[in-house]
Design a binder for these strands. Sequence first.
DNA 1: AGCACGCCGACT
DNA 2: GTCGGCGTGCTC
Length: 720
Amino acid sequence: MSRGDEQSEAGESGAPEQLALIRETVRERKARQPRAKPRTWRNAERAARLPVARVLVDKGMVHLDRYFDYAVPAAMDEEAQPGVRVRVRFGAGEREGRREGGGLVNGFIVERRADTDFAGRLAPLAQVLSPEPVLGPELLQLCRAVADRYAGSLADVVQLAVPPRRARPEQQPSPRRLPRPDMPEPGGWSRYPQGPAFLAALREKAAPRAVWTALPGPQDWAVELATALATALAAGRGALAVLPDGKAAARLDAALTALVGEGRHVLLTADAGPEPRYRRWLAVRRGSVRAVIGTRAAMFAPVHRLGLVAIWEDGDAAHSEERAPQPHAREVLMQRAVTEQAAFLLGAHGCTVEAAQLVESGFARPLTAERETVRAVMPRVRTAAEGDEARDPAARSARLPSLAWRTARDALALGPVLVQVPRRGYVPRLVCERCREPARCRHCSGPLEAGAEGAALRCGWCAREVVDWHCGMCGGGRLRGSVFGARRTAEELGRAFPSVPVRTSGGEHVLETVPGGPALVVATPGAEPVPEGGEGYAAALLLDGWVLLGRPDLRAGEEALRRWLAAASLVRGHEAGGSVVVVAEETLRPVQALVRWDPAGHALRELADRAELGFPPVSRMAAVTGPPQAVAGLLEAARETGLPAEAEVLGPVPLPVPAAGRPRRPGDPPPGEQWERALVRVPRGSGAALASALKTAQVRRLTRREGPSAQLRIDPLDIG
DNA sequence: AGCACGCCGACT
DNA sequence: GTCGGCGTGCTC
């Protein structure tokens, strides 16, 4: 037993004498019996039929990405079925029966076989952990496809797909499956010319695929998505919806419960806690529940007879898994739609370039309302220039342009007003307030960064504190970029509208809903509460647009538009007095797209730009990151392992040093090391070859230990 | 990654 | 002759 375990025991048991007693007992037990080692089964009788178990060993190392055969002791014959969790000895092998060698590792049986192609003597399975077949053939196939797509190992993907075991839920039966619900009415889908046809195809168990640009409205999307899920259920098929966060998932859950009642679907989100979550996952796996609503980990949910996969707001960064090999929910669900012949529904208020690409390539059809429908239900959207400050002194100190101030004042007579302010820390860089020159460090010319509120100004490269900054160009002494946080904005607005309650939502304190009456609701993007009563906000002010637009990222425009549309969708239509003011330069493309409410058009133009630049999703990219020789070595090896001839290597370039004080993330270089990054680009059709060549090269370098290892990332997020 | 095997240099 | 350095390769 390790030190850490002893310490945690001390923490729980309190009294020191008791602790000493426990230590004694542990030591005695250790001395007498070398711990409760499971039987070795070395000479045990083997299963009569199919005595070989092919096992996926649960070690993520890419160069171990294959199966291993083990002998099945007769005593385990019945339980050792494909899909169950087992423990096996793995590592330095048994030598002439002398040593047992190797530690016990977890794994999954993927197949029972009559024979093996392994020349040596098979080691026996050590233990069947539970008879629950958690990794069935369909899920295994999906994991394999995802691992290949992302140049990762099967074991890594399986770890994402199969939740850790909990004994209690496994020992309890799942509830009986309820009969199919009634077929729902199309409802809001009738507002889309192709909507009823999409539902009809679902009813007929076909596999339609659609990119759905949802009409604005605070609740409509959830009801419509629920209708699609319920239609699949009513047709006797399973359905799965993946949403970016627990809040959105809860909304869809409520909408679906209203439609089909309880017991026919489960909510798979992290905040349920591990044991209830595993219980629900098991209910899905066992087929007693056929519909799943969840956040990204639910993308692998083993739904029986899957008829529909849906993703909401595919542009949200939360859809990208952080753990290796970082699969994206949209890609995984596309894969499932194809292999499981399920319908595919990608919905959002905005439109990503990837979604536009799905339409362009013919993978999916657009599911969009007519222009006149959009115009009828959208709020009035106007732009306000930043300089155009209000005359009202309080509004001025809240940095409200006069149009924004007037709009808020008028709308407050009708209902709540949403004020969207970018998150602090989102600011790309600090600039001189007078001449807009980026603020640089006097010593190393690195970009200056404002840390947490009240913290000193620092250089993002050398971390030196800056005490008395002056602009190197014009001598100005004031910076902009230190955007007001939501709280500060709320304070200022409170002064500008003294008789109105002000609520804030963001960061640690996210509000789900707010009362429907007049109030100012200050929220950061993604944390906008929904007004109660279903009417929506009377107005929304989208402040500091330059912050969102100014990020040094290929997606800055798309992302800004996405966040604005998400907020503006919570505002009532213009006929009901709904109004949106965006504080940003009106000539910019995303701003125009918001004013015209044309996200699909915006995405198409972005897609055309990407095509011209050869950027994803028009091409497929991989990022290779690491010490210079590792990057060079991997690229060189990949040329010998089948890198497509059309592959283009961009870079390598030095990786920017992560800002001082930011917690280290996977993919960051260790402190003091200068890493590089190269991008490898291939035409879209060669993505599989790219991933496979890089993976093979990676395996080869790891097994031969040819220098330090590099990190591999397919579809890197932060390019440009 | 661990971990054992193996083939050369200083030692009882 | 034998112990053990860590370079190379495998893990059913």
